[in-house]
Computed example of a mutant assay.
Amino acid sequence: MQASNSPSLTRSQLATELGVSVFTLNQWAVSGKGPKAIRVGRQSVYRREDIDAYKATISSTESTPAPVSQPIGSYMMRLPEVLSLSGLSKSSIYAMSKAGEFPASVKLGSRAVGWPSHMVMQWLNDRMGNVA
């Protein structure tokens, strides 16, 4: 590919080379992730050295994540069910999660979270053990 031998790449050329979208590269640029971009007028370009350095860092830190193991029958509880089972308020759930006193939520989508049912049930069982 011609783009891989050139001294600098445009954002769209880099997106093709890395296999990500231009939107993703825009987000990386805003958040300071990815290879360092250089502004040339109104366009961002990427030097080959910076691209290679970035690729080296992601290949050295990249590993296959371990599959998440949940007990059979476990599912993701949504907030109304967690509130109903725990008897706590929404603000208490989030405050306790932040303090590490309640299982942390798992991001399911851009505006959705859930709690692994086995973790919530274990938390409830632990609380019941403290009462007796």
Score class of each variant (00 low, 15 high):
A53H: 08
M96I: 00
P71N: 03
E101P: 04
E81V: 13
I72G: 07
G114A: 11
S31R: 15
A37I: 05
G73N: 04
P103H: 02
V30Q: 13
S60I: 07
S63I: 02
T24G: 06
L18F: 03
E49H: 10
V30I: 13
E49Y: 07
K90G: 05
T61S: 15
P67Y: 02
A99E: 10
L14Y: 06
A95L: 09
T61C: 13
S63R: 14
R48I: 10
Y75T: 01
Q70I: 11
A53I: 02
S92N: 11
G109Y: 07
Q122W: 03
F23C: 11
F23I: 08
W115N: 08
A99C: 06
I51L: 15
I51D: 04
P65Y: 03
I51W: 06
S86F: 01
S6I: 05
K55D: 07
V68W: 05
M96F: 12
G109F: 08
P65W: 02
S84P: 00
S97F: 01
G109A: 15
M121E: 15
W123D: 03
R39P: 10
M121R: 13
S74L: 07
S60P: 08
I51E: 00
I51R: 15
G19D: 02
V45P: 07
T16H: 12
S69R: 11
A56H: 11
F23Q: 14
P80G: 00
E101Q: 15
Q27C: 10
R47M: 12
S74D: 05
K33T: 04
Y54S: 12
W28F: 10
Q27H: 07
L14F: 01
I51M: 10
S6M: 11
M76K: 00
I72E: 12
E62W: 13
K107W: 00
S86M: 04
R42Y: 05
L88D: 03
P80Q: 00
S92P: 01
W115C: 12
G114L: 09
N26H: 11
I72L: 13
L18C: 01
S59K: 10
L83D: 02
S21R: 02
S69V: 14
V20D: 00
E17T: 00
M77E: 05
A104S: 15
L9S: 14
L85W: 03
V22L: 09
P103K: 01
L18Q: 01
V45L: 14
G87C: 09
S12I: 06
G34P: 11
S91E: 10
Q43W: 04
S97Y: 01
G34K: 06
V45C: 10
T64S: 13
S69Y: 09
W115E: 00
E81W: 00
A66P: 11
Q13F: 09
W28A: 06
S59M: 09
S8A: 14
L79R: 05
Q43C: 11
K98G: 14
V30G: 03
S110P: 02
L14S: 01
I58V: 15
E101M: 14
S12Q: 11
L9R: 05
G109D: 13
R42N: 15
L18E: 01
Y75A: 10
L25E: 02
T64A: 13
H118N: 13
I38D: 04
